[in-house]
Design a protein around this nucleic acid. Structure first.
Lengths: 216, 216
DNA sequence: TTGCATCAATCAATCGATTGATTAATTTTG
DNA sequence: CAAAATTAATCAATCGATTGATTGATGCAA
């Protein structure tokens, strides 16, 4: 049946996502992945063409599912721009908790810039996410809700960057914060509400207070 | 002469640093490194014991030079806390321009956590920088110059994270900003002053404006 | 039977590492 | 000092292991 095939592919993708996240692209061999997935090695190439094809398939499935969630926020015309930003922050910090292993992998890959074709595709997909939040910010400026002097692109860099710094260097961050970021319970209960409140306060004060960007 | 040997080892380290930065630990083969350095493959093992030994040597050399750069901005008691933050931002954004290749490698390694001993050393070094800026922020709060509700640790994450996001994913950032971040001239002339002004405005509005961290 | 799914076996390529031989430099010895 | 002995530096060649990929045989459902 066709359903079985899809389920099997999905199972392989689940395992591959985990193993890639744990060991990186190079560290994860096709033998390890197929072994842990309980399928024959040749099936990976049969289904996905190549190791890189499998890697790309993992990313496609993941990022597109995130993108669908985003579209709903931007298209809601009834709420204010700031409300959308708050929703975005909540959605984003939730991803940190549930998906931080894969998030690490994603930005590792983007940082490497090996496999140029793959980097291009990841960049393209992420750009759609960026465009979503950029539009929210632009609308907020246009409506007068946000300060007109804000640097929209760097605001995006701050949201992504603050989260990435914490997720991608958990050892350092744990030392800075004083508790273990890699502990799922602490991450969910202590860290998540903290960064959520912080990002809201930080962005609110920057986006909505008066400040002059032109000095120096 | 002894000088020649040191120069040669240093030259190998120069090349290794570049190649590792470009391709990562796994992506950089010993053949590539020795080839680009113009030495025989066996020399890498002869001098550094193993590939990992070479990798560690690259970091050791760099970390030593890092410690020299640690400046005591915080020790200047004559200026305000905000003035110190501004100085810190300027110093930090300068490093983006001059060292961004190795910075990438450093945070990749910190992210991977594959060579635990090395991760520990990197973390220790970075913690010294963190302690510097944390003290400045604490002093600012104590003197009433900064809002007492600020989240000091996450402010640090924002400064580091915003910069790292841009440096470590130049392809994405270039697309977001609309110009090539990997072009040294544009990086220096267009991007550096921009992120400098942005970080100052962002932090000023958060640190010095009134806001309530307790809501929600 | 026909076509897709699955498998063990095997492929060529590349990896890091090591070998033994050779040369260059240094030290010891007479 | 100079010849001999020793050590350090360098090289081409090759090692075994592992990699991603492919093959041809086999099973199986339609």
């Amino acid at each position: 049946m066709d359903k079985d095939k899809i389920d099997k592919k999905d199972h392989i993708l689940d395992v591959a996502e985990r193993v890639f996240s744990e060991l990186g692209f190079d560290g994860a061999s096709t033998r390890t992945i197929s072994g842990e997935a309980g399928v024959n090695m040749a099936m990976l190439n049969y289904y996905f063409g190549s190791k890189e094809g499998l890697f790309l398939a993992v990313f496609k499935r993941k990022i597109i599912s995130f993108q669908d969630l985003l579209k709903n926020i931007g298209s809601d015309g009834s709420t204010s721009a700031w409300n959308k930003i708050e929703k975005y922050i909540e959605l984003y910090t939730q991803r940190v908790v549930t998906n931080n292993c894969f998030q690490k992998l994603l930005y590792q890959e983007l940082s490497m810039q090996r496999r140029g074709e793959l980097s291009d595709q990841i960049t393209d997909i992420l750009m759609k996410n960026v465009s979503e939040i950029r539009k929210i910010l632009q609308d907020g400026v246009k409506s007068g809700e946000f300060n007109k002097n804000i640097d929209i692109e760097l605001v995006i860099a701050t949201i992504y960057g603050t989260k990435n710094f914490i997720v991608n260097s958990p050892q350092l961050t744990s030392k800075v914060l004083g508790y273990d970021i890699q502990n799922d319970k602490l991450l969910e209960e202590k860290f998540k509400p903290r960064i959520e409140a912080y990002l809201k306060t930080l962005l609110k004060s920057y986006l909505m207070n008066e400040h002059d960007n032109t000095t120096k």
